[in-house]
Design a protein around this nucleic acid. Structure first.
Lengths: 339, 339
DNA sequence: TTGTAGGCGTTATCAT
DNA sequence: ATGATAACGCCTACAA
């Protein structure tokens, strides 16, 4: 053990060919006689030879690493999404290198550091000043995909964008609540909302606008402290003692909805959907469980991940095509929190 | 844009020093005059210079990448754990490279491929033939940490091990159920159980043995198809119509417990803990929610992750010390599913 | 189809 | 404290 790793030169010696022939044998695009290639492969196997990616990266000026920039991995949905991304990146022959930028403290350094790895691409799903960061990578001709961070209106050149159809989701939620005859509507999102939540809220309000003007419905808008279960729970605690209770609520995040529902039921004995209709967003795993059975807008992490990595692959093939912006559809999942 | 990345030579030229001085300036262990170092840093900043990790890896024969081998990322707890691992790895100055080996198909290839990256270490939390794999890395003098995969009895040389105290957890569960006066006990685990679940079951049964022999309690053992929510739900469906219902159940996984509870309540109107006491294991996020409020044995992913990465760091410092085996304690979380 | 030779950007070993 | 120089292992013209 502990013996030096075999190099292509070692393999070459054993196979009785030149080093470059070994190199070519492992490149399926090179034309090598079958006989030689086999001889090389045999020798390689015997020596336990593996290409040295560092050397390969040096010469090619590009590794097969893809940076996955993320934050708030304690949010189960984010983490679910990251995992799909990992799987998809891997499926396309890249290696995922995850960078958590949760503590915005050393964020800049963290991202600068990424430049050290000759990445094949960077996928940004979080991180505050995403636009600036993105631009820097692009300037160094490293493809960047921005996911649910901003829309094409942002002034970014050469950055590809993949978003889900947040606005449409908000619209669908509004229509569903309307159709179920609810009048006192409410919109809930976290105080520090992401781009996605803001778009959802926008879609929701816009769809409701005409009906508000005719006085058919009322809409109020509320923020909770945090975008998680606890945030929803606390919101219910402070909201439900009020006189005028909403009879239909759209939560920009399932987590908030679940926390709210728990509090509404345990602490106030509310019946859902009899007393209040609820619609969430994302379709996190929890929403499918019997205890919640939440009607929601489904954002499919697998679908989004595929779109993202496809974009990257495309961009790698055509570095100079103009930037793309893909919108992944959302679908309404009807469970039992909507009257 | 698209200009060649600055190299240390460029920096050297601008700073008016030799290339090796630049290299040394970035190595805080090298003694360099303050003045020179500052001049170098200024030049570096001006050129946007970043060390090229590929070149560094070549010469050092070691990258700062750590392989995180995992499987079944669709399990939220696994994914929570992975995320903690990512954070911890990063905190210690490494870069996490995640390898999902869920489809055991190309598993061997996947792992062989890891050898291409001159990893600083490999952390294995899943993957079927972990022992064999581990051995191969160690033979190439790459440290391996096995997490909740096996115990020291396995015949592995030079592989460090970090486990949680599964047996103790099982024991605590047994004692708690006993103390609450339950007589018809049941042990549930998934058909294809992990090492962890098996140890938990073992601890549970062993602690119960004397009481079974004196006829004080009965214990039955049941397997459900899958180790997730759905598995527990289905189990309840097939189990609860039976005549003899258990009055105290220990689930080797919280997920199963939650699914079971949902079915027990919705489909059979059971009251928990009045009709049946429930204890789970892991303390997944769900268990803390009001809807479940599951009494469980807490395995803290953060704690385990810290232990794991610490082991790696230690091993890197002392490659030849004898292998370590660390047991991370579990704690009982009392919520409301235990009488 | 195969071999030869140059260079990718760094660190480490010698000198000075 | 600093500079010159030799690796590290691979890919890719260019030559044969």
């Amino acid at each position: 053990m502990n013996k030096r790793l075999a190099t292509s030169a070692d393999v070459a010696a054993l196979a009785g060919v030149s080093q470059s022939t070994v190199s070519r044998s492992f490149d399926m695009n090179s034309r090598i006689s079958k006989a030689t290639r086999n001889r090389v492969f045999d020798a390689a196997k015997e020596l336990g030879y593996q290409v040295n990616k560092a050397a390969q990266t040096m010469i090619k000026q590009r590794s097969d690493l893809v940076g996955l920039v993320t934050a708030g991995l304690d949010d189960p949905f984010r983490s679910e999404f990251l995992n799909q991304l990992i799987i998809e990146v891997q499926r396309q022959g890249f290696r995922p290198m995850v960078i958590d930028v949760t503590d915005t403290h050393g964020l800049d350094d963290s991202l600068q550091a990424l430049m050290q790895y000759q990445l094949s691409g960077v996928i940004i799903t979080s991180g505050s000043p995403s636009e600036k960061i993105a631009q820097e990578f692009v300037n160094r001709s490293i493809p960047v995909i921005l996911v649910n961070r901003t829309d094409q209106s942002a002034d970014l050149t050469g950055v590809d964008i993949v978003n889900i159809d947040n606005v449409k989701g908000g619209t669908l939620a509004a229509e569903a609540l309307l159709a179920s005859g609810r009048k006192e509507l409410m919109l809930v999102r976290a105080k520090a909302s992401s781009y996605s939540s803001i778009m959802r809220a926008q879609g929701f309000k816009k769809a409701l606008l005409p009906h508000v003007e005719t006085g058919k419905v009322n809409v109020s808008e509320v923020e909770c402290e945090t975008g998680d279960y606890e945030g929803g729970y606390q919101l219910a605690l402070s909201l439900l003692p009020e006189k005028l209770r909403p009879d239909g609520i759209f939560f920009c995040l399932d987590h908030i909805a679940c926390g709210f529902m728990d509090a509404a039921r345990k602490e106030f004995g509310l019946l859902i959907p009899k007393d209040v209709s609820i619609i969430g967003f994302d379709d996190i795993r929890l929403s499918g469980y019997q205890s919640y059975a939440l009607t929601t807008l489904r954002q499919c992490p697998k679908l989004v991940s595929k779109a993202v990595v496809n974009s990257l692959v495309l961009r790698l093939k055509k570095p100079n095509d103009k930037a793309m912006c893909e919108i992944v559809p959302v679908t309404m999942i009807n469970r039992s929190t909507l009257l």
